[in-house]
Amino acid sequence: MNILAELLAYACLVSGAFFVIVGAIGVIRMPEFYTRLHAASVTETLGSILVIAGLVLLAGFSLVSVKLLMVLLFILFTSCTAVHALAKAAIHGGLMPETDDDD
């Protein structure tokens, strides 16, 4: 395999793993529910994009890459819908967000 593509793939995998862990740490560190949603979306967007991109570079041009891209597409489509549904359900359930607003 092309050595450059392989190096790029490993760079993607390592940085992807970094963002996955950062998102998980954010879910622990953030003070309340609505701020945790933002931390979780770090894992669900850039973390998964980089990990899947690394695997696509490793797999090369084949059906495997198509399936990987499909997994990525489903993660991106479903995660934003799930997060929105979660936020809306929390608002309806009476959990009010704390804000820093001056007014």
């Binding site: 949603l37 933002h38 931390a39 979306s41 991106l76 929105h84």
Partner: peptide, 15 residues
Amino acid sequence: YANSITLTPGTVSLE
């Protein structure tokens, strides 16, 4: 538009 807002970390559409 609402899904793009949610997909971008740092902003979540509520309603």
